[in-house]
C-alpha cells in the first residue's frame, strides 16, 4: 500500500516537473500536451446506444475513476463493445448507430457536437480483441501514426519507438528486427505492438475490448501484467469475459446484463465489494459462478 502511494507521488512529482519544464521551454500554444499528462476520469450518464431499431444499451451509468482499471464484464451480446466504443466515438461511423446521454472525459462531454474528434481519438486510445497491427514493419506501425500526427523528427520518433516498445516489453524481443513485417509476430506480440502503437500517441484514457481473448494463456498473462502497469498514468476501461482476470487486475467492476432485451449496467463498484458483497441477485449468481 505504502509502495503504491510512494509510486503515485513519485510519478506526480515527475509529472509536475515535466509540466514546469514544458512551460519553461515551450510557448503557451502547446499547452494541450501539458494538460493531458494527468489521466482524467470518465463518467457515463444515462448513455443509450441504438442500432436502428435494436437497443443495445439502455440508460447506462458508469464511473471510471482516473488512473485506475475498471473492468466491464457480462455475457456475450449484452452491448459491452458498443458501450466501450461510444467513449472514443467509434460509434459515429457505424451506419444506423445512435448514442444518447452524456459521456464525460475529464470536464468535457464528448458527445457534444463541439467535440474535436481528432483530439478525442488521441486522448482516448483503443485496443481491440483481435490484434490488428498494420501490414507494415514493426517500427513503421508506430512511426506511421506518429507521422500522421505531425511528429516527424527522426530522433524523437526513434526515441518514441524504443520507449513504447520497452514499455510493453517488446523491445528486447524485436529490437534486432524492427524492419520485419509486424504480421510475422506471434499473436501476443502483435497485441503488445498494438498497445505500444496506442501508447505512442500519448493517450490518457485507454479502452481495451477483450484484449486477451484471442491469446494463449501465457501471452494473455503478459498482456494482463502490462495493463496493470499502465496505472496510474492512464485511466483504463477494459471489457473482459474472464471474471478471474477482472478480479486479478481491476480496481473496479461494472456488470453488464441483458434486461428485457437491452443491455444495462446492473451493478458497479470496487472489485472486492462486487465479488464479496454483490447487491444485485444477478451479480451474485454471476460472480458466485466464478467462485464455485
Amino acid at each position: 500500500m505504502y509502495d503504491e502511494i510512494s509510486k503515485i507521488s513519485a510519478l506526480e512529482s515527475d509529472q509536475t516537473e515535466k509540466l514546469h519544464n514544458k512551460q519553461a521551454i515551450l510557448p503557451p500554444s502547446t499547452k494541450p500536451s501539458a494538460e493531458r499528462i494527468t489521466a482524467p476520469p470518465v463518467s457515463l450518464t444515462n448513455v443509450s446506444v441504438r442500432y436502428n431499431d435494436l437497443i443495445a444499451i439502455e440508460q447506462a451509468n458508469l464511473d471510471v475513476p482516473a488512473g485506475q482499471i475498471t473492468a466491464l464484464v457480462g455475457p456475450s451480446g449484452c452491448g459491452k463493445s458498443s458501450l466501450l466504443s461510444t467513449i472514443n466515438r467509434m460509434t459515429d461511423t457505424i451506419p444506423g448507430c445512435h448514442v444518447s446521454g452524456e459521456i464525460w472525459v475529464g470536464d468535457k462531454n464528448i458527445l457534444h457536437t463541439s467535440t474535436d474528434l481528432s483530439y478525442l481519438r488521441r486522448q482516448v486510445g483503443m485496443v481491440f480483441q483481435q490484434p490488428n497491427p498494420f501490414p507494415l514493419s514493426i517500427e513503421e506501425n508506430i512511426r506511421f501514426p506518429l507521422k500522421e500526427h505531425g511528429i516527424r523528427d527522426k530522433a524523437t520518433v526513434n526515441h518514441m519507438i524504443e520507449s513504447v516498445l520497452t514499455q510493453v516489453g517488446l523491445w528486447p524481443e524485436v529490437n534486432s528486427r524492427l524492419k520485419q513485417n509486424a504480421l510475422r509476430l506471434s499473436g501476443g506480440q502483435q497485441q503488445r505492438l498494438c498497445i505500444a502503437r496506442c501508447l505512442a500517441l500519448k493517450p490518457s484514457v485507454i479502452l481495451f475490448d477483450e484484449p486477451c481473448s484471442a491469446l494463449d494463456p501465457l501471452a494473455s498473462a503478459t498482456v494482463e501484467e502490462l495493463i496493470k502497469q499502465l496505472t496510474p498514468t492512464y485511466t483504463v476501461l477494459m471489457v473482459t469475459h474472464n471474471l478471474a482476470q477482472a478480479r486479478r487486475i481491476a480496481d473496479h467492476i461494472a456488470v453488464c446484463w441483458m434486461q428485457s432485451g437491452c443491455g444495462c449496467i446492473i451493478e458497479s463498484g470496487d472489485t472486492e465489494s462486487i465479488f464479496e458483497r454483490p447487491i444485485h441477485p444477478i451479480t451474485r449468481a454471476f460472480c458466485q459462478g466464478d467462485k464455485g
Binding site: 467509434m90 483503443m126 481491440f128 497491427p133 498494420f134
Partner: peptide, 10 residues
Amino acid sequence: AYRRAAEALD
C-alpha cells in the same frame, strides 16, 4: 480490423 485501427488512431 485495419479500418478500425486507423479510425481509433485518427
